[in-house]
Design a protein around this nucleic acid. Structure first.
Lengths: 305, 305
DNA sequence: AATCACTGTTTAGTAATAGTTAACAATAAG
DNA sequence: CTTATTGTTAACTATTACTAAACAGTGATT
């Protein structure tokens, strides 16, 4: 990959096409002087005469004829490369890899929207992965990641989608059997239903005056699945810590009741993408689609019976 | 044929190959700063992210991957074009078109040398044309022209090959029948054998003191062929004006005698080529071959019996 | 968890070259 | 022979390619 006199070659091509320096100068918007200089420089580099020239007539040498064709070929490839890139970057087509949280959020809230998006843009090839753990967007090949909570990873650009309220719920039968729960520490006395996190951190108050309480779950049922936790709570097995999307309809129907409502936790749902200065159009479109539709979809889910 | 950021593309290719800016900097001999700048500039122009980069890891985007391949292809073509040119210009192969004088000079002196040259370089494709009139080397496609006399055409570069002596000769029988010829004007009294030129111009003396004599041939035989003129002279038809290559052996054997030896004319044989600053190697080689061998060949011809 | 070595980026300044204008030389046409 | 037009040259300017050094993240080491 050696240095080449690209300007010289361009001048050569232009002059050859036009058959005259003066015409080529008009065509390219350059002065005829520079065309002459650059062509001379090219010939000097190649140590070859590419054109015979009088003040009136130009004629390519045999070498020039072939060299011209080959160079035009090369430049055409480069031009096609550029065209391809701009086309590919602006087209609503091609692959988008998404990694997102599972559970009701992923399956009930996000997936239907993505399916709809895929239907709207059949040229786009959506591929969806579920996982909750941290993903290195640079190392892995995901274009978008949707996560619960505010992520520490600074190499990602995050956009807030919605706030999800985490509630503490129990069945009325259960509440009748136990003492009223009025403080987080009261949870130490009753069976709990918990998922992957067994340390429940309670925060309350504005910044500067934050009360913290911690409860370590041990008694009760551990099951890493929101749906099953929900079923367990409905069966009166204990107090469960669940996002409102799981429990909204049961709270509405009275099948579950909320305890410690003043200790509700608010967790943001965040859309993350690699810090690309130049985003592909298809990804930009999907991001906007998600940002515009997820809030409504969230409301729908909460009101679903 | 739009402007493209060739340096940007080159930097992109180099960094992609090396997998690191620092390595690519060493490889290319540029500073890593300029690689970074140029790649950024390229991305800005394309409005596309070609590479994801951390301080530790580089990874091509999907777009970058394809763009890289396409650009490499394009550059490869350009490189091949250059390689082809240098190869073609230095190789002893390819066509050489020659236009040269006919007659004994062309057929007996030059042609055998050219045949020998063609045998020495079978990859070269020699093509030979005979003619005496002026040829525009630029308009026609001749690489070399061999002509008698010093040509006025300034657009050609001439190299002196040999001096050919033109003599006035007659058979001894003829000379016995006529008065002694001691001055050009004496030729008006005897039959002459002449070719295409029927005005014989005689010059004598150094510059500044030149004597000129002109004789217009009319009586005698006109035949535009040196060989036939020679035969006519041998048959005693008259005084012929012939290059020494035609008559040398007859002068040696006494079959012909020279008249007016002090009025001998010396005509240079000249090798002409287009004013190419960069000569193809094969043409340079042929020119040297001719320049080196024609004098010997000329001597050979003169001594031939 | 803090340091360290290394990476890519930024900035400011310099060297190189791509570019222009105007005068010039050469050629074909009137 | 003159004229109009072409390609080349020369002197100069604007642009850009490039460098060096300070900077700021990142990942491994301890």
């Amino acid at each position: 990959m050696n240095n080449q006199n690209y300007n010289g070659i361009r001048s050569f091509i232009a002059v050859s096409k036009c058959g005259s320096f003066t015409l080529a100068a008009e065509e390219t918007g350059l002065s005829k002087a520079v065309l002459s200089q650059q062509l001379s420089a090219l010939e000097k580099e190649l140590e070859v005469q590419l054109m015979h020239r009088t003040t009136r007539k130009l004629r390519l040498t045999e070498l020039g004829e072939v060299y011209l064709a080959k160079c035009q070929q090369g430049f055409k490839e480069l031009e096609l490369a550029k065209d391809w890139v701009t086309q590919a970057s602006t087209a609503l087509a091609g692959p988008i890899k998404i990694n997102m949280v599972g559970g009701v959020i992923g399956e009930q809230m996000l997936a239907p929207l993505l399916i709809q998006f895929q239907q709207n843009h059949p040229e786009i090839e959506l591929s969806i992965n579920f996982s909750s753990h941290q993903v290195d967007l640079l190392a892995s090949q995901f274009d978008l990641v949707i996560r619960m909570g505010t992520l520490a990873d600074s190499s990602l650009v995050g956009r807030h989608l919605i706030n999800i309220t985490t509630r503490y719920v129990a069945a009325p039968e259960f509440l009748n059997k136990h003492q009223a729960i009025q403080h987080p520490q009261d949870l130490n006395q009753v069976p709990l239903i918990y998922g992957s996190v067994n340390k429940w951190l309670f925060k309350q108050g504005k910044q500067g005056n934050i009360q913290e309480q911690q409860v370590k779950a041990s008694k009760g049922l551990q099951v890493a699945n929101g749906e099953v936790m929900c079923q367990a709570a409905l069966a009166g097995l204990g107090v469960a810590r669940l996002a409102d999307v799981y429990v909204a309809k049961y709270l509405a129907s009275g099948e579950l009741f909320e305890v410690l409502p003043q200790w509700q936790e608010i967790t943001p749902l965040t859309l993350l993408c690699p810090p690309s200065q130049y985003q592909l159009e298809r990804i930009r479109v999907l991001m906007n689609f998600l940002i515009n539709n997820i809030p409504n979809r969230y409301e729908q889910l909460l009101q679903m019976k």
